[in-house]
């Protein structure tokens, strides 16, 4: 079967690649475009490691076929930092040690960024529900939630308030 030629926008820049018609967007990002920041955990839509933005919506890239992104806009973890400057979420994940093995981290950052863009001041409950589709086998989630809420507080200029109440 002939490979398909796909033209799309990735992290704000136009991109093109060749793929198998039934290849997932996740595989195309990793194998055709060498954007290996997006991870594969389950390939069944359950873990969130493969989270990307598609036309401004958070989606699992393992549940998207690569040819679907023709003419659309894809945002991946590689587009989150501005050059060498980390996004506040990335900085806070480091400060709070919100990662151990790191396989879940790109998915959490992409998903948390989508949350803060939609809801800049989430409650702990809102953050936990929004991120319920991102699985982490290492951290126990608490540090991740603290990092997200602390980022929100910093970006809103209300720092200090969120770091205490995030237990449990």
């Amino acid at each position: 079967m002939a490979r398909m030629h796909v033209e799309t926008t990735i992290n704000g820049e136009s991109a093109e690649f060749l793929c198998q018609p039934g290849e997932s967007l996740l595989d195309a990002l990793r194998n055709e475009l060498n954007l290996t920041g997006t991870k594969e955990g389950c390939n069944t839509g359950d873990c969130g490691a493969c989270s990307v933005m598609l036309d401004g919506r958070l989606v699992p890239s393992c549940m998207v076929l690569a040819p679907e992104v023709e003419g659309r806009s894809v945002g991946t973890i590689e587009g989150v930092a501005q050059g060498d400057e980390l996004h506040p979420l990335q900085q806070k994940f480091l400060e709070h040690a919100a990662l151990q093995c790191g396989i879940c981290t790109p998915g959490f950052i992409v998903a948390a960024k989508a949350l803060l863009e939609k809801n800049p001041d989430p409650t702990e409950e809102e953050a936990r529900y929004w991120l319920a589709g991102n699985l982490c086998r290492c951290t126990g989630y608490d540090k991740i939630i603290r990092a997200v809420l602390d980022t929100a507080a910093e970006m809103n200029g209300t720092n200090g308030a969120a770091t205490n109440g995030a237990a449990g």
Binding site: G48, S51, L58, V59, P60, L115, A132, G133, N134
Partner: peptide, 9 residues
């Protein structure tokens, strides 16, 4: 239905 990610699809 599903997670935030699944909701997007």
């Amino acid at each position: 239905i599903g997670s935030t990610q699944i909701q997007g699809r």
